[in-house]
Design a protein around this nucleic acid. Structure first.
Length: 410
RNA sequence: GGGGAGAUACCCAAGCGGCCAAAGGGGGCAGACUGUAAAUCUGCUGGCAAUGCCUUCACAGGUUCGAAUCCUGUUCUCCCCA
């Protein structure tokens, strides 16, 4: 991705218009407009805060929705402030969680933080980004300080929060330390003097706490801008690693393409809006195409191109067409190394072959796949779990629709 | 602090001494159909070269010919009272 464009000096109103894309809610637009106006007048960029939790080293398209919004602010000449929540990660954000999250160690957090930065460098302009860790201020906060912070919130208000309320109603445990999370996040806003804070809609409560703490200190409260939660590949739940319904930004072009192709049709508009820069009239036109499949191909190409290249996107599209539409073999497939010494009379038990190729987790799993007719070698279906298959090298093992490999004798 | 309820496979949830590798649903996987969409139908869903054997019903012991089921202790959770 290109670096931030030199601000083309859009008027505050024009900026607001750009920033509105895909947004769920801005609290409030009037405040944002007046901040943008003040910024334009003074030449002081707005400080736009985004807090991230370095709990998982893999970032996926769901994370990019908010990162892309941050990028928009940067492109408009504002100052991005990224908070690595190294301390908050020690707590574990309860947002959207229906159970207490595991607490990470400091070492894990540090490792994750670095990977995180590497991965977002393609999305936001990291060179101009102000990066801070909230451990910098929390580490030295005294217990007295914690008590003061805690005194600024009541239990009743905290329990208004959707996820706490749900867990409470469902008789599920809520640990004391989880109640501190929103306060910590709000305190971050205070520390970095945020003008705007970005987050997913699941962050709404936390973002509002920041406003309250700022008001308590007689500071101008931050504008909160919430983005919709990206629905994952299953078409139902929030895209998340734990659900396994995600597309990682560092996935290979082919995987990324295929995953986009597997989303529900209804999700396409949403994905165009939140994951691409394509102007609305353009994607609307694409969506009106006769065959929804064509629109999805366009979407997949756009997304792959953004994280890889146009060339990679074209190649992925061709490969996809060849393998899944025309049912031909993929151009590249992994080698399955089989030791000559392991062959008996030049053959190998089909179950071992599948398991050792990594196409099944266990032998039992491999048996099931064979029994269900999922396994072919050079297009010959193998349905006998006791089958010994003769190998001379070069055979293609296919398990299910997407697991391919070429036998190589070593 | 006192009293009560509970912990079952990826998730929810039945089971209440042998017929339990454990009903049902969800999810997932596979097959058919297809656009790697949706919907639908079918099968599978602890491990093991496997008509059998091994490990699993929070953890550790115990009773019994036999325990997910009964007893004791431990850990954790929820509810009520204080």
């Amino acid at each position: 991705m290109p670096k931030s464009n030199a601000a083309p000096a859009l008027s505050p109103k024009e900026q607001l218009e750009v920033l509105r894309r895909g947004v769920f809610e801005i609290a409030s637009e009037e405040e944002l407009l007046s901040k943008l106006t003040a910024s334009a007048a003074s030449g002081r960029p707005l400080r736009v805060k985004l807090g991230v939790d370095p709990t998982s080293p893999d970032i996926h398209l769901g994370h990019t929705v908010v990162l892309r919004k941050l990028r928009q602010f940067q492109d408009l000449g504002h100052q991005g402030v990224l908070i690595i929540g190294d301390y908050t990660a020690l707590v574990g954000d309860p947002s959207g969680a229906n159970k207490t999250r595991p607490i990470l160690t400091e070492d894990q957090v540090n490792a994750n933080a670095q990977t995180y930065l590497d991965q977002i460098s393609g999305i936001v302009d990291t060179s101009s980004l102000e990066i801070v860790r909230n451990g910098d201020w929390f580490r030295d906060l005294t217990f007295k300080g914690v008590l003061e912070l805690a005194a600024s919130m009541t239990v009743a208000r905290m329990m208004e929060r959707d996820d706490f309320a749900k867990r409470w109603a469902a008789h599920q445990p809520i640990s004391m330390h989880e109640l501190l999370y929103p306060l910590m996040q709000g305190y971050d806003s205070l520390m970095v003097r945020a003008d705007v804070e970005l987050g997913g809609t699941d962050q709404t409560f936390n973002l509002l706490v920041g406003r309250q703490l700022q008001r308590d200190k007689n500071l101008s409260p931050q504008v909160t801008l919430t983005m919709p939660i990206l629905v994952g590949l299953d078409g139902k739940d929030k895209m998340s690693k734990s659900k396994g319904n995600y597309i990682g930004v560092s996935e290979a072009p082919g995987d990324m393409f295929g995953k986009v192709m597997s989303i529900a049709d209804e999700l396409m508009e949403n994905y165009f809006q939140l994951l691409t820069d394509m102007p609305e009239p353009d994607y609307r036109k694409i969506l009106s195409a006769a065959n929804p499949r064509d629109a999805k191909v366009a979407l997949a190409r756009t997304i792959v191109a953004a994280y890889h290249s146009e060339t990679a996107a074209s190649a992925a599209a061709e490969e996809f067409d060849r393998v899944f539409s025309r049912h031909q073999l993929p151009e590249d497939m992994p080698d399955i190394d089989v030791k000559r010494a392991s062959l008996e009379n030049g053959a190998v038990w089909i179950i071992t072959l599948i398991a050792e190729a990594g196409f099944a987790a266990t032998n039992s799993d491999a048996r099931r796949l064979v029994a269900q007719g999922a396994v072919t070698i050079d297009d010959n279906r193998i349905e006998d779990v006791a089958a010994k298959v003769p190998l001379t090298g070069g055979e293609v093992l296919k398990v299910g629709k997407r697991r391919f490999g070429r036998i190589r004798l070593v």
